[in-house]
Design a protein around this nucleic acid. Structure first.
Lengths: 218, 218, 218, 218
DNA sequence: CATGAATGAGGGTTCATTCAT
DNA sequence: GATGAATGAACCCTCATTCAT
């Protein structure tokens, strides 16, 4: 469905979707390379495969491109999370699986996530709010998984914070890549984080956590 | 000492330091309000209390102001960390104290840290590298504290990751403030994070962690 | 009849007339509200009830719309003048009647006349000339009426100027409306102008001029 | 004094006046040739003798140039009227002299007046109001002259209308030049208009009006 | 050392016009 | 005949940077 937040002068809805996808694809790369502010609308148009005039048939202001990009990223992240995480599951194994697939997702989309991290603040307050909500939804999903998997184990505030920690640790893999990716692969990073997360949950848990080479006990 | 990274036409070193401090002070506020790109050099000059001409006696390019600001922030953070953390200490209590004072620091400087988080990417690669080094130093400090406080408890990779986690969790208090500061004060946030961090370290540790109201066991 | 000055790609003459009338009607309002230059072709198309593509089937350039509008206004003014003024009449009464009906016409069409006053200069020189000719015709009509009604009373130059004065005074009712329409209605305005015009023509004339309340002698 | 309606970033008041005068001079010619809308800001800057950047140090928006131009024209007209007309005079001769010098003024400034006539409508409503007031002042001056010169001769409404007529007849010499200046010089135009204006004021007046060749009785 | 006027490259955006469907 | 998506020249305006005083 066309994004109702950003009006277009074009009538053909299907075309809007198609052109905006071209746009988003082209823009993400540019934003990644030079940031939103240093990217010109002409560059966006070119990277999208159409003229500057056409670009402005599908948006009103340059900022709309940023919104479209951010919204699309969040949307894709959210969809993939929903597809790979089942909040109804009630085993520790399913928690581990959730974290694992979320981290994998963050690895796949690290460029996109980095862009978003650095540029959302350039959105209007309302657009930020709109996008922030999606974030809240995702954190809530993680919360639910934790609660279901380890009922009674943590206080409410702890669960909330754990969800936030996991969420940020996923993004951190992307935005601190220059530091982390020297010492970890996404695999070892994931294993080690899970290990730290579930430490001290008792003997019966230990077996589930695959000990990686550099994630083992001393 | 004058920052050797940014040359000035002025000879009087003391004056350079003075003017640049005025500059940084004025600029931080502006960057916080509107971001680096939307802040004009004229605004910076005005906020600094001198003319645009004078501004350019103390820097070469607008980006220099950003560098000066970022560098100053990192410098202040680093100095305060060094002042409050003693890496030679070898008790769990000292680890807790280190985290506690670091989080407090991040609370005090959350605006500055937020600015940095959002604008470093606008620095030249070399400037980023220069500033990144300070970050590495700080993470290394945290690593050292963990190793000293809990020798043999964690694998090397785990320690490195814990240090990174703590470091990011401190900043996260600032850059996710709209989400976190609804549910936590810096006190409860700190307590809960420490609790999660040290879970399962054995009976002898438990007593040290003050159980807060919303950080207690179920 | 189709305006030969503005070619169209459409064959059906009746359709051209119909579409152009839609166009003129829509455009006048827009030109009145925002002026020719600030009105876009898209707005004209929309106000005309068809698409931008269709608009360009009936004109070549945006300026053609302005020409069509101006021409149509002049045409209507001229037609109404010809309908209400009989240059063959030879009485002072008929002169008064002519002025009276011309002023009434200018009151009815003040918006249109104002538009024309402000926008003709945007026409090409040739289009201006074409339209100017209609104006000359109208002034000539007034001249003829004066000559017939008051033979021998004025020198040739005086007649010419009187006709011009009357013509402009009619338009002035529209383009100086913000000043004049505070103090006059079209009735009192007409009466007073006629009074000033015919002053001192001798006793036999006096009776004909209806003395209005605010048009009487001191 | 600097025009308070249009702010400038320049501090030196004298410089503002100087540069704006350059600007007005350059702009009037351009507006005359191609109209306000078809004149670009770069052309204005060039015609003013400075760069586009400098232009914008002295105005905020393109419309400000138009306002400055209109205001300056009205100001000059008003000043010259005040210098040449003495509203205290009480003779018919002085009325004639007033009209004569006003018409001469309109001849001298016909280009400027034409520009204003065609472009004021492009000003913002408030700017128009500001400029309109100057016009009212001038009409009021003419009213006063008529009242003083011919006390008791005309009703109030008549005086008001006469003043308006004279005012517009002066401008008309400029904006209908293509028609009028074929048949009249500014001299014969003035004489004829005065003659028409004062017809029938009695024998004692007649002598004062110089009969011109093409302005004589039949 | 300090000032602020001057510069102009370059950016965002508009809109008249075309043309394939 | 009608439509409306596509185009890109051109416009207004900003702002980092310089340099004469």
């Amino acid at each position: 469905m066309t994004d109702q937040q950003v009006p277009s002068t074009i009538k053909d809805e299907a075309l809007i979707v198609k052109r905006r996808n071209q746009m988003i694809k082209g823009a993400v790369t540019l934003f990644m390379e030079k940031g939103f502010h240093k990217t010109t609308t002409r560059e966006i148009a070119k990277a999208s495969g159409f003229s500057i005039g056409t670009l402005y048939e599908y948006i009103r202001k340059k900022e709309d491109v940023l919104f479209l990009v951010c919204d699309s990223i969040y949307q894709r992240v959210k969809e993939r999370m929903e597809a790979s995480i089942d909040p109804e599951q009630t085993t520790v194994k399913s928690l581990i699986q959730a974290v694992r697939s979320y981290f994998q997702l963050m690895d796949d989309m690290q460029d996109e996530v980095l862009v978003m991290y650095q540029e959302v603040k350039s959105l209007s307050r309302e657009a930020q709010e709109y996008v922030l909500q999606k974030e809240r939804d995702m954190v809530a999903m993680l919360e639910q998984v934790i609660i279901n998997s380890l009922p009674g184990e943590y206080a409410e505030a702890e669960v909330r914070l754990m969800a936030n920690n996991i969420f940020v640790q996923g993004q951190m893999w992307g935005f601190r890549r220059w530091i982390l990716q020297r010492n970890f692969t996404i695999q070892t990073y994931t294993d080690t984080q899970i290990h730290l997360l579930l430490r001290g949950l008792g003997k019966e848990i230990e077996g589930i956590i695959q000990p990686a080479d550099n994630a083992g006990h001393a």
